[in-house]
Design a binder for these strands. Structure first.
Lengths: 210, 210
DNA sequence: TCGTGGAGCTGACACTTGTGCACTGACTGG
DNA sequence: CCAGTCAGTGCACAAGTGTCAGCTCCACGA
């Protein structure tokens, strides 16, 4: 036992627990404001610790923001990869992708809202972190697309272009779902339109090499 | 003379001038922060007037934000409409649209940055204003698309879907251009990719009715 | 010509904010 | 078992915030 990285047992575990409670508190507060207007005291108050204890975990609010980005997007890569690899025909892949985004928004709306908001937000490091993560998604998606037989003749940069397009479509779909609110009918409408968008793009890519 | 709406001459003109200087000052400050973190005092300081004079023009910072939205997007509709209507073939329309967005970003980067940032930002009324304006663009684009012979058989909602897709593409292109910075080569790369995206979508829509 | 509406100013208020400093007390490794 | 580390506390400070009440002053309309 007791040989985890950076120290042993209880002490570190407690630290991580309050660190997590800081992240959680921040995420809740961020549902109704943006990171650059979120105060350090506000977060610590909501987390139930003294203001100065904040510095034991993060240098900045920006630092905390970056941590939130990692937390929300970091674990998603494997999920996405699996989902892309598992499906075979185009229509199935489309339905799967939209369903994946829909579930993400349904189960973790606060995270998605945070990402949508800070993607172009006022805090540089956070913006960059999100941008970098989305780029990774695009590269991964391109790699997955390259394995499809119908794309074997594609130029490398056209593939990347298509992958980035898909990523952007999914991102805008996510934020449209957020804007649709909890109303089931509205969400279904958004999902339907997202599927048609994807169908259109898939159709275009099928004739790309003409 | 002297029968402008709401009062006469010099007095009202002066008011509008300082109102404009408030908007200008805010826009400058908003290049490096988001609206929800922008202080009333900060703006009035930059505009060179007393803090309390702010209330003579706007109820809120949110109110000022909405005014900024109108200022930036209001005049754009006619431009876009003209641009769509003027061109004939698809490739020409694509080049024209991308060039229009590129010029917009080049000549009014602060406005574009503001819009990208506050589209999902922390201030509800501003978000709604931007969303509403973009919806108007989509409706207008749909109307313009409907006039094309190759779209005469399209279902109404498919047309709207396509129009919204185009709008989203242009918006993401605009923010990608901002992220590319002032480097000419990077911008050209973004514009090129935007054109290929549009080509792909146009290709897909050409086969939509199969 | 004079009275007035209203743009803009000054000063003050009650808060909130980020951060420095010295401190406590529980866990830790030797 | 004991000394040391360090997460978390309390207090203090300077600086900034939004907003209120009351003032000045001047273009305007009658």
């Amino acid at each position: 036992m007791s040989h985890t990285i950076g120290g042993t047992g209880v002490r570190q575990a407690r630290k991580q627990r309050t660190r997590q409670s800081l992240l959680d508190a921040a995420l809740v507060l961020l549902e109704e404001q943006s990171l650059s207007s979120l105060g350090l005291r506000e977060v610590t108050r909501a987390a139930g610790i003294a203001p100065t204890a904040f510095y034991r975990h993060f240098r900045d609010m920006a630092d905390l923001g970056v941590a939130l980005v990692e937390e929300s997007l970091g674990s998603l890569h494997t999920t996405v990869r699996a989902n892309l690899a598992a499906t075979v025909d185009s229509e199935q892949r489309i339905a799967g992708a939209v369903e994946l985004v829909a579930r993400l928004v349904r189960e973790h709306p606060a995270y998605v809202r945070f990402l949508a908001r800070e993607r172009h937000g006022g805090v540089r490091p956070v913006r960059d972190a999100i941008g970098g993560e989305l780029d990774r998604f695009a590269v991964e998606a391109a790699a997955e697309l390259a394995r499809l037989p119908e794309a074997s003749q594609w130029r490398r940069d056209d593939l990347l272009m298509l992958a980035r397009l898909y990523v952007d479509l999914m991102v805008t779909t996510a934020s449209a779902l957020l804007a649709a609110g909890p109303d089931a009918a509205a969400r279904e409408r958004v999902e339907g339109e997202a599927r048609r968008r994807l169908r259109l793009v898939a159709l275009g890519s099928r004739h790309w090499l003409d």
